[in-house]
Nucleic acid binder design. Structure first.
Lengths: 283, 283
DNA sequence: CTGAAAGCGCTTACAG
DNA sequence: CTGAAAGCGCTTACAG
């Protein structure tokens, strides 16, 4: 059995790809990792996965730790980093892919979708379907900039139609089915809306469960719209109306962008993996 | 910024912990990884996660790859390995923790719960609650030995009460909400049962969705019992009756078993993280 | 084409 | 206590 530590030191190539994601509890990140792994399987590269727990200070420690292994690349979720993390990523010279989001200018390469445009598409789609009294149920944006971008995009679409959200219910913690259910209950108690736009599918499934429990008819009494296109949404009694993001594809494209390309592109490279409105039956 | 590759070669200590899990799609494995990471956070060890995709041949490649980085330990899910994998793990000398399951004799240390006993507890609990006509809805056992162990344990409990499963519906693929829903439909078409024992919560949630769609009343017309105690089950209109396994604890205990202990125990060490019947409202 | 030597960037044990 | 040297196990460039 060879010793790759010695091999890497001698050849100055570690064949390691460092990956930093905020969580594995939100199923979108395991899906991205799955895409990464499927592309890496046939290569002689190996991913080293680190979890930041949505903590940018901890992310800094993780990035420093990964860089000390001289990886071929760092794949990191999002654009939100501490100044020190950004500086390290910028100056280390290794390839850097910022994943999920293409709404900012990347250090090297971004692979993902425009969450702003997805939010806009959501608003536009629901207006076309005749909804006018919009509610929003979300989770804490400080750890999830992309949810904020979608909200902003949706507001823009509503604004173009001369309307705006009439009610909000925002959970303090992260997105979850439990938070979606609780905040839907709060929103329904406080205001009358036709349709609720959720920060993501987990929250929206919570909304569906609230309606099933309390006998609110979907979509006649309340329409529900999510984001992500998770498997669970398709299996609900009525398929969840949502926007599909292509998480597996993001992982694949991130690897394609760096494999066999040791040098950064001259100008930042942006790879759009797109999204798609899934009409479903809840809105 | 130091070079840890050179450092590891010089000190002959990599401070790496290799982790092999079959999947990240089944949320139980991310939860175990979360436990591992939470314990590793304050140490100077770093986990290197590999995904086998339920493919034992690929697992062998992964274990060989991890071992070539001279890790302090290998944490691997389950006891099912190719002979070559088992030989490598046995002879490499590094600490080895087999996770999830304690129903076999480990190479070094096992951390997990007895799935056989959990299955037995399920059968016993449902018999005590008066159920007599049992159905089973499951997924492919070849990649999930632990589901088979639970089934066997449940059969034993039924047998002790003089009964047995009257109907089975087994999906060909892995466990999922979609497969649970489809197999529940098949089973309900074919036979009349009081209660269905599911191979896990994902499958059971599919069963709940089938009942919600077709108007079958839970638990009066059909009782549903899962396994794992996932968050989603607790948020259903009626909380899912299930057995809670402690995935986060498994990850934590796996790290506790190896951190600061470079030598294997003289006799195999078994750490039982236990389980707990959650009565819920679906059975 | 083959084989011995140099060197990767650190840690460690040891001479001063 | 300090600092130069040896050595970790490979790869690579080069002498023969």
């Amino acid at each position: 059995m060879p010793n790759r530590i010695a091999g890497s030191l001698a050849s100055l190539e570690s064949h390691l790809v460092g990956v930093v994601v905020p969580s594995l509890s939100n199923i979108v990140f395991p899906e991205v990792l799955h895409g990464i792994n499927s592309r890496l399987k046939s290569s002689n590269y190996q991913s080293v996965i680190s979890i930041s727990d949505y903590d940018l200070e901890h992310e800094e420690v993780l990035v420093r730790g990964l860089l000390s292994w001289k990886p071929a690349a760092i794949l990191i979720a999002g654009f939100d980093h501490t100044p020190a993390t950004s500086r390290m990523l910028d100056q280390c010279g290794v390839r850097v892919v910022e994943m999920m989001d293409i709404d900012s200018v990347p250090i090297d390469t971004a692979v993902g979708m425009s969450h702003r445009r997805a939010g806009y598409a959501t608003g536009q789609h629901l207006i076309e379907r005749g909804y006018r009294r919009f509610g929003y149920v979300g989770h804490n944006w400080t750890a999830d900039r992309r949810a904020k971008l979608r909200y902003d995009g949706c507001c823009e679409a509503l604004s173009n139609a001369g309307i705006s959200f009439v009610a909000h219910a925002i959970a303090e913690g992260p997105s979850s089915v439990a938070n979606g259910r609780a905040q839907t209950a709060r929103l329904c108690d406080a205001s009358a809306v036709d349709v609720v736009v959720y920060s993501n599918d987990d929250m929206a499934v919570g909304g569906v469960f609230h309606c099933l429990s309390t006998g609110i008819s979907i979509p006649d009494q309340l329409a529900i719209f999510g984001f992500n296109g998770l498997d669970i949404g398709r299996e609900l009694p009525r398929p969840l109306s949502t926007v599909r993001s292509n998480r597996f594809l993001i992982g694949e494209k991130a690897i394609d962008a760096i494999l066999g390309r040791p040098d950064r592109p001259i100008t930042p490279n942006i790879i759009d993996t797109g999204f798609e409105v899934f009409v479903g039956a809840t809105a």
